[in-house]
Amino acid sequence: MGNPNILLTRIDNRLIHGQVGVTWVNHLGANLVVVANDKVASDEVQQNLMDMVLPDVIQTRYFTLQKTIDIIHKASPRQKIFLVVKDVQDALTLKEGGVPIDHLNVGNMHYEEGKKQISSTVSVDENDIEAFKKLDELGVELDVRGVPNEKGKNLLELL
């Protein structure tokens, strides 16, 4: 089993949308977007809506977290993977399950009751902060950035 060619892992609670589907995919040169999320893995309507955003030449896969952990190492070297997760807990589950995530782009985590806003697009609660600290301890670089041409900020410095 080889190391999968994961170009970037991004947290975005919207998963695939215009910004991810066009800007990030083009910037990275990805040819496969893998959405790792237990709920979306079984929601064909949501999958079809997300597929409509992407150019036809970009493939998508919608896997549960466990299936992602089980098969990511079987990816072909030709697959240039952009891995998208909904939240930091999903990212931590993947990392602890052996998915080689070295760099995590934190793009969008909506504000909701009980969360504090740390950037214009990222809000966190205590559980999120704890998960980010664990990822940091596991050697994952945490970068807050909406679009590729923005200067990234170290998430830990924003907490």
Rank of each mutant, 00 (worst) to 15 (best):
N37T: 10
Q79P: 09
S76L: 00
K133C: 02
D102F: 06
Q79F: 00
K67H: 15
L83P: 12
I58E: 00
D56L: 05
V124H: 03
L49Y: 08
S119P: 04
F63A: 00
A36H: 10
D90Y: 08
D70P: 14
L49I: 07
V45Q: 11
L142T: 03
T93E: 14
D90C: 07
D38Q: 08
G107T: 12
D70F: 07
H27C: 05
E126C: 01
G107M: 06
L92P: 09
K116S: 15
T60W: 00
L104Q: 14
K74F: 04
D90A: 10
L138I: 00
V25G: 08
Q47N: 02
F82T: 08
P100Y: 12
F132E: 12
G29C: 11
D143F: 12
Q46Y: 09
Q117C: 05
T121E: 08
I69D: 07
A41Q: 03
H110C: 13
L83N: 07
V85R: 09
L83Y: 15
Q79C: 02
L65K: 11
K39Q: 10
Q46W: 07
I72G: 11
D87F: 04
K67V: 02
T121A: 08
L92R: 10
K80G: 01
G97F: 07
F132I: 07
H110R: 10
N127C: 11
G98H: 14
G97A: 03
L138A: 09
I81Y: 01
L49P: 05
F82Y: 15
L54F: 10
V35K: 08
N48Q: 11
N26E: 11
E44M: 06
K133Q: 10
D90R: 03
V84P: 00
G139H: 03
E137M: 04
E141A: 04
E112F: 07
G98Q: 04
T121R: 12
T93H: 08
V124G: 04
G29I: 06
L54V: 09
L94H: 12
Q46P: 01
E44H: 04
V85Q: 13
A131I: 04
T93V: 07
V106I: 14
L65S: 11
V88I: 15
D38V: 02
V124Q: 08
A36G: 13
Y111N: 10
